[in-house]
Every structure is written in structure tokens, then in C-alpha cells.
Design a binder for these strands. Sequence first.
DNA 1: TATTTAATAGAACGATCCATAGAAATCAAC
DNA 2: GTTGATTTCTATGGATCGTTCTATTAAATA
Lengths: 205, 205
Amino acid sequence: MSRTRLLSDDVILERAIAVFWRRGYAGASLRDLTEATGLSAAALYHRFVDKDGLFVAALTRYADEGLVERLARLSAFDDPLKAIRALIDELIALSLADPERRGCLLVNTALDGAPMSKAARAVVLKRLAEVEAFFAAQLRRAVATRLLPADTDVPAKAAALLGAVVGVRVLARLDSKAGRLRALADHAMAGLDAPARSLRPKSLQ
Amino acid sequence: MSRTRLLSDDVILERAIAVFWRRGYAGASLRDLTEATGLSAAALYHRFVDKDGLFVAALTRYADEGLVERLARLSAFDDPLKAIRALIDELIALSLADPERRGCLLVNTALDGAPMSKAARAVVLKRLAEVEAFFAAQLRRAVATRLLPADTDVPAKAAALLGAVVGVRVLARLDSKAGRLRALADHAMAGLDAPARSLRPKSLQ
DNA sequence: TATTTAATAGAACGATCCATAGAAATCAAC
DNA sequence: GTTGATTTCTATGGATCGTTCTATTAAATA
């Protein structure tokens, strides 16, 4: 009963993601967005209310696209530790494959200081929490199958792994050769079956 | 032979740092900066040429203030591994002590997508490289004194530690209880004397 | 075909952006 | 007190910001 849309939401968001990814929220102007999407500002506003609405939609789609399938697929691995390592390796490969070195839109947004909506922040928190939950689930499996010691502090290790992933994504934005990122991954995995002990200062024990 | 300055560069940069830290580069308007510093835009431009000049000066001062003394002091530790751990712990304490949860200005800037000068990016790269160099130096000492195995891959481990620090700074911006950050630190230290082995997928060895 | 309804574009909005020009203010040297 | 150098403020420039108004287009329904 109405005019058909020239562009699907999919296409628009795909193009908007590229802009936000490259420029950040505050750095992405409406002009950038209209040029990239091929839609007028009025049309964008008609669909997404305002700039922040478009941003939240873009963020959500970015996570849906890059995270959901990946976590589901890796969760099906027989070896939970290999699932963890595979996730990190895939994110490294993604980072290295991007000639623009844009890192991860979610992580970039987490550090974006520009004033933005609570909704946008909430998306970031929720999606990173999904990654952490994935790690926790795999670690629990690993403990259950005795791949890791029974006294493993699963939440702590899951948080540490999330930190490692974030580290990879940030370093990937700087310059970082492939070797550095892999070193980070190796280090993160090595820390799993090596409970903190000798290296921890006495004062902190 | 001229009019005396109302405010020292120290004071101005201190206040400008607070603005850039809270808002990011693109998010910090000249209005924000003039209000925070108490100086007119013209006066700021007279001293720092343009917004980016002020930003670079602020970034540099931020690093000089937070990094130089700290790295020098910790380098004097007898135990190099304790020096590493102390740096991480101090950064965690700093992160937790900030009620605004602004993280680290250098790391935030590294991820800031907004168009900014090469000079600003260069400052970030240089200062984070200093942290990595500190880690590398301590690791070399640790190897020399047999605290770590002789075959330790120092550059790889240094990069991994830098990644851990970055991870701490990012997670600290999200919500992150103290426990999560300490878990990350524990994990990072644990990975040091545990060379990657069993957990590394066969395909990657 | 006429009507309805959503999607779109163009033009313009006020606000704010970064930046500058010119004058006023201040202090040291003479 | 005059001169000269420098800092500062006021005022404002043009550009761009995010947003909205109005009108047009195109498809679905009647």
C-alpha cells in the first residue's frame, strides 16, 4: 500500500556500519552517512528516527552478523579449549584481513568518549557480555571434562579471555604485525592451565 | 617584556586533558575547552595553533605525567616480575579510582575513529611502545636472572603484556568490578612462566 | 482510475562547529 | 610616560552540524 523502499535496511546498515566503523560516532557526520548510504538525510531519519537510532541499529546488526553465528558454530566444537582458541584466532584473522585496520566496532564504541545514548552503550555491554558468556561456557565444559583443573575460577578466566580479545582488537588498530597478535593469543591460552602462583607478589596473595 | 599569562600551560593542559578524556577528540568542542580552561578560544589558538595542537600537547603531557615517573620508578625494582605486576596493579588502581571510568586517554585515543592528525596518532604509538619496551626490559632481566626460562620469547611476551594492560583499560571503562581486572592481571602473569603447549591447537603448531 | 499511504528528495532551519581578525589590556624596558 | 612585545577578549566569519518541513514519487488498494 505504499511506495517500495529503494534500499533494504540490510544494505543501508551495512553501509552505515562502514562509516561509523571508520570514523567513530562523533566523527561520522550525516553528510558522510547520506553519501555512503545513497539515501537522503530525511529518508534516514524517517526510518531510524535520528543519528543515534541509526547508530544503535548499525551496532546491533554488526554484532548479529559477526558474533551470533560465530559463537553458535564454535560452541559446537568437541574440544572447548579449541573453541576458545578458534574464536581468538578468527578475530585475529578478521583484524589482519582489514586493510583499514578498523579493529572492532563494538570495542571502538566502548572507548568512544563522545556523548551518545544509553541504548548504544547497552548494546556494546550486552554483546561483549555474550562473548564472555561464551568463554565461561567453554571453560565450564573444559572443567567438566577434566581438560582444566576442578578449581579453575571460571568467571575470572572468562573475564581474562575477554580482556585478551579486547587487547587483540586494540593492538590490531595500532600497527601490530600478525606475530604480535598471535603472541597475545598464545599467552592467553597459556594462562588457562597455569594457575597464578609463583609470579604473584607475596603482598597480593 | 610582555604581558604575563593568566594561566600556565600546566594548568591549561590539565584542564584540557580532562575534557578530551571525558569526551574524546571529536566530542570535545572548542566551547567545552574554553569553558573548562577559562581561556578564550583566541587565546588557546594563540598558544596551541589549533584544536589538534592543543590535543597533541595534552596527550603528551598526559603521558609525561602518568607514565615517565612510573616506568622509571618500577624499573628500579629488584624483582623484574614484581615490577611488571606492580605496573599492571597500579594501572588497575588508577582505573578503579576514577569515578567517571574514563580509562586511559592514550588507549581511548588509539581507538578514536575521528579524523585527527598524524602527530596525535604518533604520540599514542610512541607512548604505548614505551610501555611495551618497559615490559621487554623487565622480561630480559627476568630471563637473565633465571626467573624465566632462557627460551622465553621476550618480544612476544612483551606484546602480550601490553595487550593485557590495554584489556584492563578497556574493561575498566565498561563496568568491571575490581575482581575482573585483577583476574586479568593474574591471568597475564600466569601466562608468563607457562609456555604455550597443550592448549595450542595442533593445526597451529 | 482514484485514493491512500509510506518512502523519498530538496531546501532550509537554528545551532554549533573551528577558526580568525582587530582591538584592548598588560607588563617589561627604556 | 612612552615604546614594544605579547596575551587576551570581543566579535564574527563561513562552514558544517543534526534535524525538520514541505512536496513529490511510487506502489497497493479500492
